[in-house]
Computed example of a mutant assay.
Amino acid sequence: MDIAHVRNEFTAHPPLMREDLLEKPVAQFERWFNEALSAGVVEPNAFVLGTCVAKRSFQRTVLLKYFDENGFVFFTNYHSQKAQQITQNPQVSMLFPWFSLQRQVRIEGRAEKISSAQSLRYFLSRPKDSQIGAWSSPQSKVIDNRALLLNQWQNMKQRFAQGEIPLPDFWGGYRIHADYYEFWQGQPNRLHDRFRYRFDNQIWQIERLAP
């Protein structure tokens, strides 16, 4: 199937200049994230998490739940494939593909588990059915059919019918400590704007990259 004709011209933004950027990358990310929220981008906190183990790379979409200057936090099953890969190689990448805004943000850094207390705080804020879901799914394991998953969810629902649902010991958050950011904004004629923030000598260096 030849799809060479599928193309889009990028005209949503004026050129992005160095003076338009904030000095701290987290502040710049927050500015663009808030603009994605205001523009009604679907799942603006969804990002592609990249891991690499034994010369193979892996990607999947997860949801960002918190960020500040200390890093970017997401949650998962600690027995999942992604968690096992992070244990072997904590260097990961993040990609926020805000297609409707003709923007994307790429971030690289090191992932580490957050404390159980921090994970519990978020876990208790989730809807009860989502809490039960965390207990129900043997994430990344092979299962015979969907009925088994639904039966397990019903069993967990009955088990935790009364009182608060405890935090599973196999579930929690990771914080990604970023040391590299790239902000990409589409421009006409494929002359896109790309700026990277690179942490060097305790200072964030900001550089323009060719598209």
Results as ranks from 00 to 15, higher is better:
Gln185Ile: 06
Arg110Asp: 04
Lys157Leu: 08
Val41Trp: 03
Arg31Pro: 04
Lys55Gln: 13
Phe99Pro: 02
Phe183Trp: 05
Phe170Gln: 03
Ala147Thr: 12
Arg110Ser: 14
Phe160Arg: 07
Arg31Lys: 15
Asn201Pro: 05
Trp184Gln: 05
Leu120Met: 07
Phe72Ile: 10
Leu64His: 06
Pro90Phe: 00
Glu35Trp: 00
Ile176Cys: 10
Leu95Met: 09
Phe67Tyr: 15
Asp144Thr: 06
Phe195Asp: 10
Gln202Thr: 09
Lys113Ala: 12
Ser136Asp: 00
Trp153Ser: 08
Phe199Ala: 04
Leu120Lys: 11
Thr11His: 05
Glu112Asp: 11
Gly173Tyr: 00
Glu35Arg: 00
Asp144Ile: 01
Trp204Asp: 12
His177Arg: 06
Glu108Cys: 09
Gln102Gly: 11
Gln85Ser: 07
Phe195Gly: 07
Phe72Lys: 09
Phe10Val: 02
Phe199Gln: 08
Gln202Ser: 11
Ala210Lys: 06
Leu149Gly: 02
Phe96Arg: 04
Arg18His: 12
Gln139Phe: 01
Phe72Ala: 04
Tyr181Ile: 02
Phe47Cys: 11
Ala39Arg: 00
Lys65Met: 06
Ala147His: 11
Lys24Trp: 02
Phe47Trp: 03
His192Thr: 08
Thr51His: 02
Leu120Asp: 14
Lys113Tyr: 04
Thr87Ser: 10
Met17Tyr: 04
Pro127His: 11
Asn145Leu: 04
Gln158Lys: 12
Trp32Asn: 06
Gly40Lys: 01
Val105Cys: 12
Ile203Glu: 14
Leu22Glu: 08
Glu69Pro: 01
Gln88Cys: 08
Phe58Gly: 02
Gln102Phe: 04
Arg60Phe: 03
Arg208Gly: 05
Tyr181Phe: 15
Leu148Thr: 09
Lys141Thr: 13
Val105Ser: 07
Asn189Trp: 01
Gln152Asp: 14
Pro44Trp: 01
Gln85Gly: 05
Glu19Trp: 02
Pro90Cys: 00
Ser119Pro: 10
Ile206Arg: 01
Arg175Ser: 13
Ala4Pro: 02
Gln118Met: 13
Tyr122Arg: 09
Gln158Cys: 07
Gln102Leu: 09
Thr51Ile: 03
Gln85Met: 08
Pro25Cys: 02
Gln28Arg: 05
Val73Asn: 04
Ser137Ile: 01
Gln85Tyr: 01
Arg190Asn: 13
Cys52Ser: 13
Glu112Gly: 10
Glu69Leu: 01
Asp129Ser: 14
Asn189Asp: 14
Ala4Leu: 12
Val53Gly: 08
Gly173Lys: 10
Arg208Phe: 02
Tyr78Gln: 13
Gly133Asp: 06
Gln131Pro: 07
Lys113Met: 10
Asp179Gln: 08
Glu164Tyr: 00
Phe33Leu: 08
Val105Lys: 00
Glu182Phe: 00
Ala27Leu: 12
Pro166Glu: 04
Gln91Ala: 11
Gly71Leu: 01
Phe67Thr: 09
Trp184Lys: 12
Ser38Arg: 07
Leu150Cys: 00
Leu37Gly: 01
Lys55Cys: 13
Phe58Glu: 13
Gln205Arg: 12
Val42His: 14
Gln84Thr: 10
Ala46Thr: 14
Cys52Thr: 03
Gln158His: 10
